[in-house]
Simulated scan of single mutants.
Amino acid sequence: MNLTPLLDDSPTLRALQDTVDEWIRTVGVRYFSPLTNMAILAEETGEVARLMARMYGDQSFKKGENPDALADELADLLWVLTAIANQTGVDLTEAFRRNIEKKTARDADRHASNPKLHDNNTQQR
């Protein structure tokens, strides 16, 4: 199996989709059903939410929880999202391009004129 595209500094979305597909077909044997992948997507989203609540919200970590797990959980989320795109015929490169165009047209003035986004008391990244 060739994982070289993902070992590059910045793989394209196409390389990501190809690598996930190759891994699933060789190591994973076959794709799970779309419904199973949707359930896995929900579970992984919950894991990210749990970590975010502990890292940036008001919850504290429980004994034994790994505070460094966010990157791995986000990668799991990206993995299953990519698998769903593959099995439903979605080209993430094209979908992302169209989505950015839609957001740009829709929100060109909306965010710039939102006083809440210019308030110095709001939390920044």
Rank of each mutant, 00 (worst) to 15 (best):
M1C: 14
N2A: 15
N2G: 12
N2Y: 06
N2L: 12
L3C: 04
L3W: 02
P5C: 11
L7H: 09
D8V: 06
D8N: 12
D8M: 15
D8T: 11
D9K: 14
D9I: 08
D9N: 11
D9E: 10
P11A: 08
L13V: 00
L13H: 09
L13G: 03
L13F: 12
L13T: 02
L13W: 04
L16Q: 10
Q17A: 02
Q17K: 02
V20S: 01
V20E: 00
D21S: 06
D21K: 04
E22M: 00
W23E: 01
I24H: 00
I24A: 03
I24G: 01
I24W: 00
I24V: 06
R25T: 12
R25D: 09
G28N: 07
V29I: 07
R30A: 08
R30D: 12
R30C: 14
F32R: 07
S33R: 14
S33D: 07
S33G: 15
P34G: 02
P34S: 03
L35Y: 01
T36W: 04
N37K: 08
N37A: 11
M38W: 01
A39G: 07
A39W: 03
A39I: 06
A39S: 08
I40L: 10
I40T: 07
L41C: 06
L41M: 15
E44H: 03
G46M: 06
G46P: 14
G46T: 09
V48D: 01
V48L: 12
V48H: 02
A49S: 13
A49W: 00
R50P: 13
R50H: 11
R50G: 15
L51S: 07
M52A: 15
M52R: 10
A53T: 15
R54Q: 12
Y56L: 13
G57P: 13
D58R: 14
Q59R: 10
Q59S: 10
K63A: 06
G64I: 03
E65Y: 00
E65L: 04
N66T: 07
P67D: 02
P67Q: 07
D68H: 08
A69I: 05
L70W: 01
A71S: 11
A71C: 12
E73W: 03
E73R: 14
L74W: 01
D76N: 14
W79G: 04
W79D: 04
V80D: 05
L81E: 00
T82R: 02
T82G: 08
I84K: 05
N86V: 04
N86L: 01
G89M: 05
G89N: 01
V90W: 10
D91L: 08
A95G: 06
F96C: 14
F96D: 12
R97V: 02
R97L: 03
R98I: 05
R98T: 09
R98V: 10
N99F: 09
N99S: 06
I100T: 05
E101D: 13
E101Q: 15
K102H: 11
K103E: 09
T104S: 05
A105G: 10
R106I: 14
A108Y: 14
D109E: 11
R110L: 13
H111A: 12
A112C: 11
S113D: 03
P115K: 15
K116V: 10
L117E: 09
L117F: 05
H118G: 05
H118N: 04
D119M: 10
